[in-house]
């Protein structure tokens, strides 16, 4: 169920799209840093002179710490004047898709969903520093997974690890590029992803999401 419209793309370094202005809503920023980080925010200012400004964003990714890759999520303000070398794209999720996503979260109660207190890495597809805790969580329901796939980002309300080790995501927002490299946004109630396609899965901790 991918959205054909590109009007929600605020900045795309590949297609050279830049929409100047101040934006509110649900905005995803994909960075070009070595950490493959993603920034979630409800605001963004884009201008050719000031660059990109985000207030109170949440940056998520893996960084190298003591020769180990560790998942992190950090809340901070961002400002990049020379953003074209730092940001791959910024996209705002349409309100109607966010509405469906929000309703999916309430469609049923899952009292046995695991909420992690602190952000942790569930999976990292890396030859040298790989992380794989999928077996440990087989059959469990984990809340707030953030996933980077080969050509996109998947944010879901919850993830269940199947017996064969592949994750199944429920109530998913998907951002990705099609065969023409055009950015698209979609919603899927259930998404199966094979682990070979995954770059990483990070489970956000509730401490970082406290209001």
């Amino acid at each position: 169920m991918m959205d054909e419209s590109i009007s929600n793309v605020l900045f795309d370094s590949v297609k050279d799209i830049l929409v100047e202005g101040e934006f509110k809503g649900s905005i995803i920023t994909k960075c070009l840093d070595p950490e493959d980080s993603i920034i979630f925010s409800d605001n963004m200012l884009i201008s050719n002179t000031e660059g990109i400004i985000i207030k109170d964003g949440l940056k998520v990714g893996y960084n190298l710490d003591n020769n180990k890759k560790k998942a992190f999520s950090i809340k901070q303000d961002f400002q990049w004047e020379d953003f074209r070398t730092i940001v791959e794209y910024c996209i705002r999720i349409p309100d109607e898709i966010m509405q469906t996503y929000s309703e999916g979260q309430f469609s049923d109660a899952f009292p046995f969903t695991l909420n992690l207190l602190h952000t942790a890495g569930l999976y990292l597809n890396d030859f040298k520093y790989g992380v794989n805790h999928l077996d440990f969580f087989t059959g469990e329901i984990l809340k707030n997974p953030v996933t980077l796939i080969l050509h996109g980002i998947l944010i879901a309300d919850r993830v269940v690890i199947k017996e064969d080790g592949d994750p199944v995501f429920y109530d998913c927002l998907i951002v990705g590029r099609d065969e023409h490299e055009i950015l698209k946004v979609g919603y899927e109630p259930i998404t199966n992803v094979e682990d070979v396609l995954l770059k990483y899965i990070i489970i956000l901790g509730t401490e970082e999401l406290k209001l």
């Binding site: 809503g25 649900s26 979630f40 605001n43 927002l173 956000l204």
Partner: peptide
């Protein structure tokens, strides 16, 4: 209400 525009807490 969504924290960071996405996460329902």
């Amino acid at each position: 209400e969504r924290k960071y525009g996405f996460f329902h807490v």
